[in-house]
């Protein structure tokens, strides 16, 4: 475990906690895309099947359980919680799941390392994670008024992806650990999706004004 990986996992954890905190304390999910949250729940459910088959470390297992638990709780809050669900803006959050899920499923069937159920689902989760943020980014662009916590959430997620790339570079030089090229490309695509958001996030921070994305 290197510093980039640890920092990446911690920002990922922080992003989820920020979102749960917002939903739980303010009892509002305004500006949060249910589509993105459902896609993340699907990402974790398909990727972490190995908690039943492999043991890597206590850290690894605990983190997987946290990501599974938190993603499904967020979906539950937005769909079922009697107060939170009222703040969900269904009209704005229109991105179609299958528009992302089907191409990822197809791509996983075509490009994978091994043709086994577990491996295909893992590959699918890697592809899906790369694009799962899209409904959230579209929603941010539409709502214009981005509250602080939602902005922090997306920023922390972007930071997590950037740190994972640094982690792969570091692991390559220090451990000669090769991350599969599927992971590299999906990871790079995912990180690039945040570039635009990062630009406006830092601009608003520098000028000390409220974050707004151009229409």
């Amino acid at each position: 475990m290197n510093i980039f990986r640890l920092a990446g996992d911690m920002t990922h954890l922080a992003s989820v906690l920020v979102l749960l905190l917002k939903i739980h304390t303010i009892k509002s999910c305004a500006g949060v895309s249910l589509k993105t949250q459902e896609l993340y729940a699907l990402v974790f459910a398909t990727r972490y099947l190995d908690i039943f088959t492999d043991f890597i470390s206590v850290y690894n297992t605990v983190m997987k359980l946290i990501f599974l638990g938190s993603s499904f709780s967020i979906v539950w809050y937005i769909r079922r919680h009697k107060i939170v669900r009222r703040s969900y803006d269904k009209e704005q959050d229109t991105f179609r799941h299958y528009f992302l899920v089907l191409p990822c499923l197809l791509l996983a069937l075509l490009i994978h390392e091994k043709f086994t159920v577990k491996e295909l689902l893992w590959t699918f989760s890697i592809y899906l994670e790369a694009v799962a943020i899209l409904p959230q980014l579209v929603l941010l662009q539409r709502t214009r008024n981005i509250d602080n916590l939602t902005g922090q959430y997306v920023f922390l997620l972007g930071a997590y992806r950037s740190l994972y790339i640094l982690n792969w570079i570091y692991r390559y030089f220090t451990e000669r650990h090769f991350v599969h090229w599927i992971t590299w490309i999906a990871g790079l695509v995912q990180t690039l999706l945040y570039a635009d958001f990062f630009y406006y996030y830092f601009e608003s921070w520098k000028n000390n004004v409220k974050l707004q994305l151009p229409a």
């Binding site: 990986r5 996992d9 990922h12 190995d50 088959t53 492999d54 890597i56 470390s57 690894n60 983190m63 997987k64 990501f67 893992w122 994972y164 982690n167 991350v179």
Partner: peptide
């Protein structure tokens, strides 16, 4: 399982 096949990242 082969060590190198283990996916130790999250």
């Amino acid at each position: 399982i082969d060590q190198k096949d283990q996916k130790d990242e999250l």
